[in-house]
């Protein structure tokens, strides 16, 4: 497959919602070690609301889907994850526009727009130990592969890079969010946001690779 369509994006979001539900306790547990023990709970609440909206979006264009997912997250998640994941999907949707399918390159540009939105909203820099540390390498890996590969391959590379990014910052001291209050004690715990972002890219990979 060389194009990405509305059905794939919807499937990716559905898979993300299912996996967040399955891993809700794990994400909350990670958050209780270095945050405030609500990441899995909040993400599940938001994506349950998103999943309920998806059926009515089956005929919509990619931009409408992205924006509907973003607005729903902003209105239901709260915490830091709501505005951050909400902004990611809003910007992704805006970049995808009123098309029903886009090329792999165009999808990559939309992922990058989402990443830039997250960085702007959260003011996080690389190595602050946040979701950006999984998202930025994932988008970079996608971009570097998409020239020579199809979107499924590029998303495999993106998901692997997200996981590597998540693991790479685990030993670091957090500099953003509630984990930063812990100082040195935040080191050697996986970041919950980087973990959920890895699940996002794995879900997009599996939706588009047809797994």
């Amino acid at each position: 497959m060389t194009e990405i369509g509305a059905a794939e994006l919807i499937r990716g979001v559905e898979l993300f919602a299912e996996r967040l539900r399955e891993r809700k306790a794990e994400l909350t547990d990670l958050d209780s070690k270095i945050g405030d023990a609500d990441h899995g709970i909040n993400m599940d609440r938001g994506f349950t609301a998103v999943a309920a909206k998806l059926p009515e979006l089956s005929e919509a264009d990619l931009g409408t889907i992205g924006k509907a997912v973003g607005m729903t997250l902003i209105s239901t998640v709260g915490g830091a994850s709501g505005p951050l994941y909400g902004t990611f999907f809003l910007r992704l949707g805006t970049a995808l526009g009123d098309r029903r399918t886009v090329s792999g390159q165009e999808f990559g540009a939309a992922l990058r727009a989402g990443l830039e939105g997250v960085k702007q909203r959260g003011r996080a820099e690389p190595d602050d130990k946040t979701m950006v540390d999984a998202m930025a390498p994932a988008v970079d890996a996608y971009d570097s592969r998409i020239g020579e590969a199809d979107p499924a391959d590029a998303l495999r590379a993106a998901a692997a890079a997200a996981a590597e990014g998540r693991d790479r910052v685990t030993p670091l001291v957090a500099r953003k969010g509630r984990a930063s209050y812990l100082g040195e004690r935040s080191a050697h715990h996986a970041d919950p946001g980087a973990t959920s972002t890895t699940i996002l890219f794995e879900s997009l990979r599996d939706a588009i690779a047809g797994a």
């Binding site: 609500d38 709970i41 709260g78 915490g79 830091a80 709501g82």
Partner: peptide, 11 residues
Amino acid sequence: PGAVFTSPVPD
């Protein structure tokens, strides 16, 4: 008031 220990939403 947001959910327990979670900031409220912009709405």
